[in-house]
């Protein structure tokens, strides 16, 4: 996983399989970056994620709650049809914004 700070935005480049094991690491890394970086928007890059289970949903929901405390938002892009199957059934599209491209996600919309 790579983290990139772009002003008040934090881009989280996920790699591999977003399960409970990996989600724990994502949570720790992102929360630390948010704490020191004055972040108002977390953007998850799913381009390199081939698998996700409900632990991934839990991790995204957790980051949404974190952003809400500072009036920030959460977005994601690069979602494959397989990952989308889970995202669609979880209902998290109501609380985070799904973008088609990275450019769209970082352009500062919402």
């Amino acid at each position: 996983m790579k983290l990139e700070k772009l002003g008040e935005q934090l881009i989280v480049r996920l790699e591999g399989e977003l399960d409970h094991h990996y989600a724990t690491r994502v949570r720790e890394a992102v929360d630390a970056a948010v704490l020191v970086g004055d972040i108002r928007k977390i953007i998850f890059d799913f381009t390199e994620v081939g698998f996700m289970d409900s632990s991934g949903i839990g991790a995204i929901m957790g980051r949404y709650r974190l952003m809400r405390t500072v009036g920030g938002t959460v977005g994601a892009f690069g979602i494959s049809p397989r990952v989308d199957k889970l995202i669609a059934m979880s209902g998290i599209k109501k609380i985070i914004t799904i973008y088609t491209t990275e450019k769209e996600a970082t352009r500062g919309i919402s």
Binding site: A23, R27, D53, S54, S55, I57, G58, A59, M61, G62, L86, M89, S90
Partner: peptide
């Protein structure tokens, strides 16, 4: 507190 989404069984059933 562990950020479980509560969706595990729902996913299995689906």
């Amino acid at each position: 507190e562990l950020e479980r989404s509560g969706m595990g069984f729902t996913v299995m059933e689906t």
